[in-house]
Design a protein around this nucleic acid. Structure first.
Lengths: 202, 202
DNA sequence: CCTTTGATTAACCAAATGGTTAAATCGGAT
DNA sequence: ATCCGATTTAACCATTTGGTTAATCAAAGG
C-alpha cells in the first residue's frame, strides 16, 4: 500500500473504495481499516461512526454524479448545442467514476432520507428549472417539438447513465469484454445526442 | 397477517418482501421469519441457508424483469410495430413490480456471479439475437436508419427501466408525489416509443 | 531529560446474526 | 388410544461486527 499520506485522507480513500464496492450494509469497518493499512480504532477516532463515515463518502459521490446535472445546462447557446454538449460531457465524466451511479441509486432506493437533506442543501437545481423553461420556450417558438421538459431531462439522463448501471448485464448478455464495453460507451456520446435531437426535431 | 397458506409459500413471500426491500446484505433472517409469522428455524428447515433462499428470490425476480426482453420481440410484424409494442408491454409489466429493477441491478453489480449461471441457463436470448439480425436487415433495406442493434436495444431498455431505478431522485428533484410519478410513467409508454422511432426514421 | 499532547494500537465488549439442536406438537394411519 | 413421521418451537451456539478503552508511542516544548 502507498502509505505517506495523512491518516484522515487515507481513511476516506479506503472508505470510498469499500463503501462504493459493497454498499453501506455490505461494508465492514475492519475491511476499511485493512484497506487503509491502519488500526480499526482509528476510524472511530477520526470519524465517530460507520454512518458518519458513510455520509461523507455518499455526499461526495452524490456531488460528482448528480450535481453536474444542475450546472452543465447553463449558458446561452441554442438548446440543441447545449444538449449535445451536456451528453458528451456527462458520459465522459461518468466514465471516470463508472461505479458511482449504481452506488448512489442503490443507497438512495434503500434509504431515501440520505438524499433529502442533500437535495435541499443543493440549490443548484435552479439551473435545471431554467433549462425547463427554455425547453418550453423553444417548443412554443417551434424551434423544437413541444415535449415535457421533465421527460426530456429524464430521457437524457437515462441514455447517459443506464449503461453504467446495467454494465454486468450488458456484458453478460452480449458477451462483451471491457474493451468492447468502453467502445460502446464511446459510441454513445454521439449516439445518445442523435436520439434526443431526432426526437426533438419539430 | 393472512396465515392459511402453506408454510413454504409463506416463507417465499416474506423473503421476497424483505430481500427486495433490503438486499442480501441488509436482510435479516429474523425479519423474514417475523414477516412470515413463523419461527426462524423454519427458514432453515425448508431452505437450508440464507443464500439458498436468496437465490430463489433473485432468480424469480430476474425471470420477471430480464426474461421478457428475450421473448417479447418475437413475431413477424414490421419492426416499428414491434418496438412500439415491446415498450408499451414492458413498461406496463415493470409497473406491476417497480422495485424489482433496482433490486436486480444492485445485486448483479455487487455479485456478478449470481447472474452468470442464470444467463447461461437461459437460451431465450436467442430471440434477442434474432431481433438484432432483423435490425441490421431493416437498416440495409432502408426501412430504418442503420444503427447498432446493441445500442438500439440498450436505448429501449434504458428509457423503459431507468425511471423506476431513479424514482426517489426523480420524485425528490421534481417534487412529485406518487400520483404524479405514475402519470409520468404512463406518459412514457407512448413517448419512449416516439423517441426511438424518431431516431430510427431513415 | 522529562513532560505533555495527540496519534496509534491491542485487547476487549456487548449486541446482533446465521445457523443448529433437542424437545415438543400435530396429524393421520393402524 | 397409540404410534410414527413430519412440522414447529425455544433455547442455544459460534462468529461477526460496530464500537470502546486503556496502555503505548512519538514528537514537541520546556
Amino acid at each position: 500500500m502507498a502509505q505517506e499520506k495523512n491518516t484522515e485522507e487515507q481513511i476516506i480513500e479506503a472508505a470510498r473504495k469499500i463503501f462504493v464496492k459493497r454498499g453501506l450494509d455490505g461494508a465492514r469497518m475492519q475491511d476499511i481499516a485493512d484497506e487503509a493499512g491502519i488500526n480499526k480504532a482509528m476510524l472511530h477516532y477520526y470519524y465517530r461512526s460507520k454512518d458518519k463515515l458513510f455520509e461523507i463518502v455518499f455526499n461526495e459521490a452524490f456531488s460528482k454524479v448528480v450535481t453536474p446535472l444542475g450546472h452543465i445546462l447553463e449558458g446561452t447557446r441554442p438548446i440543441e448545442e447545449k444538449i449535445k454538449e451536456v451528453i458528451d460531457h456527462y458520459i465522459t465524466g461518468i466514465s471516470q467514476v463508472p461505479y458511482l451511479p449504481i452506488f448512489i441509486l442503490s443507497e438512495v432506493n434503500q434509504r431515501p432520507e440520505i438524499m433529502i437533506k442533500r437535495l435541499n442543501a443543493q440549490p443548484s437545481f435552479g439551473s435545471i428549472m431554467n433549462f425547463m423553461k427554455e425547453v418550453i420556450e423553444a417548443g412554443k417558438n417551434g424551434k423544437i417539438r413541444e415535449v415535457s421538459p421533465i421527460q426530456l431531462f429524464l430521457n437524457i439522463v437515462s441514455l447517459c447513465i443506464f449503461p453504467f448501471v446495467a454494465r454486468p448485464l450488458v456484458q453478460g448478455i452480449f458477451q462483451q469484454d471491457n474493451v468492447q464495453f468502453d467502445l460502446l460507451i464511446e459510441e454513445r456520446k454521439k449516439m445518445a445526442a442523435d436520439v434526443i435531437l431526432a426526437w426533438l426535431k419539430p
